[in-house]
Design a protein around this nucleic acid. Structure first.
Lengths: 129, 129
DNA sequence: CTTGACCTTCCAGTTACTGGATGCTTTAGT
DNA sequence: ACTAAAGCATCCAGTAACTGGAAGGTCAAG
């Protein structure tokens, strides 16, 4: 199977798959013509990475997870640790964004939003002297 | 006032201020020796940008907001529109992250996290054949 | 035999900085 | 006056994870 079909199968753009190859995340074998070939093993890895990326794991996380995925002797504790660290990152990001959201929506509510130049949003950004 | 004190005043690193100058977001005048000089006007703008960035506005948003900030004739509606668009982005990000968090914490709960190789997290990433 | 769809690589751009090298200027201390 | 340290400047490169585009090789269909 060539890259286009691998892209269709995995849901990843072909460009992204080439990029993953370039950084050594996956290493599909090449045909005599230089084309990358994708069979079951490669397709599974692509789907795996696609899933992990969809959950927000970084490429380096994916690299580590992929190692564990390929290792039949892995301990599930290793996977759980990586996942837990990532979960903490996600939770931090969520609460940061919630703070932003609350502040911003408060400011928006205060703002008339009409033709007048008076604007509490800008006033707030200005800070006090 | 030189860049170091402007950095202290605004809370932005000096490097970042130079970067903002480079991209034309701010344009502090220069002394005879080539040093950037910061007075009230420039300091206000720096604080303004720092606040907006802290709320997650992009640099281009900041550029637009800074124009409006400097324009005494602005309509508050313009500011409100930009702020509302940004609020939507934030809300989308939050709900994406919440979905990630829920899926991931579910998987983590299912995982033994011991020495055994069996791991529901990896199983899930693998997808079904 | 040509057209068009695929494939390849390489280069540049994205966002918003950050770190480091090199060198000039100013300031403080002796 | 001399020197050392601090502060300023510019420029180059790197970060994360792609994405777009150009130039050129390959392959299948008509």
């Amino acid at each position: 199977m060539n890259i286009k079909d691998a892209a269709l199968y995995s849901g990843l753009p072909a460009k992204t798959i080439r990029y993953y190859d370039e950084i050594g995340l996956i290493s599909p074998p090449r045909d005599d013509n230089g084309y990358r070939t994708f069979e079951k093993t490669e397709l599974h890895q692509l789907v795996f990475v696609a899933h992990a990326r969809a959950l927000g794991f970084t490429i380096e996380d994916c690299r580590a997870l992929l190692m564990l995925y390929k290792d039949d002797q892995r301990a599930s504790a290793d996977v759980k640790r990586i996942a837990n660290e990532h979960l903490k990152h996600i939770e931090t990001k969520i609460s940061d964004l919630e703070t932003m959201r609350d502040t911003l929506s408060h400011l928006i509510n205060e703002c008339h939003g009409d033709q007048r130049p008076d604007c509490p949003i800008l006033d707030n950004f200005r800070g006090r002297d």
